[in-house]
């Protein structure tokens, strides 16, 4: 993440004299097929992934949780309608939805971000609606309503504090999924276009050279694996915290 501060090279700067180099003092992680610094490119790819994960998690959290609480509150027809919409979106595999969106404007970060946010918000909707309904049905909320408190208060004191742990878990899983999804569509060449440094795209670009330079192909894979694993562990850790309450 700190790469731009440390090194002057850019993601795209090529050096065709030094292609597929092994790691050296100058190039700590070696160079790729165009002689570009792997270190710089990995750092840029990682930054891009985190940006996307962060953005889409925040967006989907707001959309998904908002709709879920709205549906749990209104019940009746509104809930049925929203359920129908969400269920039909859920019937599509998430990746197909992202591919569809990405195909509309190929190589657009915004489209990928939108698509991933929509896919992630489905999960929020499902989980949060179920727990919100239980909370809204509880005697605690009923007594708060009898005492004259309004919806904002119930949201502040009852819903959000109780939903917070699940929101955190969902967000950690969501971030892992978002990173994986972007890498997957990069891998099938529908996502961002070269020369952007993106983990999935790097994997597919380095794929032809795996016999000459296996260490290069390993790098984005290891990074992807580590990031997704840590996010999942983070989510899992929080799950234990919920169980132990």
């Amino acid at each position: 993440m700190t790469q731009p501060v440390i090194q002057q090279q850019t993601v795209g700067s090529q050096d065709l004299n030094k292609i597929l180099n092994t790691p050296s003092f100058e190039q700590p992680l070696g160079t790729d097929q165009y002689g570009r610094s792997m270190y710089v490119r990995l750092a840029a790819g990682l930054r891009l992934s985190f940006w996307l994960a962060g953005l889409s998690v925040v967006t989907s959290c707001i959309i998904g949780t908002g709709l879920a609480i709205f549906a749990a509150w209104c019940r009746g027809r509104t809930e049925t309608l929203l359920d129908a919409l969400i269920n039909s979106l859920m019937a599509l595999p998430g990746l197909i939805l992202v591919l569809l969106f990405a195909a509309v404007i190929p190589g657009s970060f915004v489209m990928i971000y939108l698509a991933i946010s929509i896919v992630l918000s489905l999960e929020y909707y499902r989980v949060i609606k179920a727990s919100s309904k239980a909370i809204l049905n509880s005697p605690a909320v009923e007594s708060s309503q009898l005492l004259g408190f309004n919806h904002v208060y119930i949201l502040k004191r009852h819903l959000l504090p109780e939903l917070k742990p699940s929101l955190f878990t969902l967000s950690a899983y969501g971030a892992a999924n978002a990173i994986l999804m972007m890498a997957s569509i990069g891998f099938v060449y529908v996502g961002l276009k070269p020369p952007t440094a993106e983990l999935g795209l790097m994997i597919v670009e380095l794929f032809p050279y795996y016999e000459e330079a296996p260490w290069l192909l390993c790098q984005p894979l290891v990074v992807l694996f580590t990031v997704v694993l840590s996010l999942n562990l983070l989510a899992g850790k929080n799950n234990h915290a919920i169980e132990n309450r």
């Binding site: 005697p139 005492l147 004259g148 504090p161």
Partner: peptide, 25 residues
């Protein structure tokens, strides 16, 4: 008045929002 009919519940633990000090409530 609207707020002058109140109910006391069977399960006293269930009527307060969890995790929030009573002072705040």
């Amino acid at each position: 008045g609207k707020l002058e009919i109140q109910k006391i519940y069977q399960e006293p633990t269930a009527v307060f929002a969890p995790g929030i000090p009573l002072k705040l409530l």
